[in-house]
Amino acid sequence: MFTEVKTHLKLILKYFTFNLSALTEYRTSFLVQVFGMALNNASFAFFWWVLFDRLGTGIGGYGFTDVMFLWAVASTGFGLSHVFFANANRISGMIITGELDTYLLQPKNPLINSISARMSVTAWGDVIYGIVLMALIKASGMMWVMFGISIFTAALLITSIAVAGHSLTFYFGNMEAVGRTLWEFTITFSIYPETIFKGPVKALIMTAVPIGFITHVPLRLVRNFSWGTLLLLFGVTLAYALFAFILYMKGLRKYESGNLIVTRM
């Protein structure tokens, strides 16, 4: 078990350095894309700035800095997820086209192997943007500490949610749109104040699809730290990662290697 984990961590690192060297082959396009992503995120900051400025008060107990902290964690967490596991969001495509074959021929866990094989260029923009944003809002020491911790739990949660969503393709045929939609929800919900969500929605993002643990719980920890909540954050993250992993591996048995054809009669 332990050596398994070690082997696969090594593999992830290997892919990371491999893909990084590929990026340097295209330095201009790398920089341009990073810039594009940072700009994308900045436009949201603009939205919030205009809104808070116009209202002159907080929103549901959140100030501008709080929302920007949500943004910083979401951005860097998402970025890390796509720097290390860019293929997580392509799982459905890999299943449908049979691209997964290549990874199934290799002596590694096909999930880890396939999702870490690619790196998203633009994701570096997200990683950097979150850090820059933290600096711009003059984040407190506690915010920096929680940022340092939660970008990793966020990255793992975002990846796991994508894996879980796309794994449904094994079971029900092409679920690419569902996987992508789920992933977009993940981002959408994690960048708005927790307090605007109520009732069943709040229950949902705190349980079955633990989007609330990506940014909201870390912000709670910033405002009101407790060891219990921190442990809960770690526990939920690991449990969900395990859940996604099992869902994928069980689904893999149904894999049909590009033979999911629609025939006309």
């Binding site: 929103i59 549901g60 929800f185 919900f189 708005y192 104040p193 307090t195 929605v201």
Partner: peptide, 14 residues
């Protein structure tokens, strides 16, 4: 639907 819902929630709060 979700997008509209999020904005509905946000504006209702504001």
């Amino acid at each position: 639907f979700v997008f509209i819902f999020v904005f509905f929630s946000l504006w209702s709060m504001i």
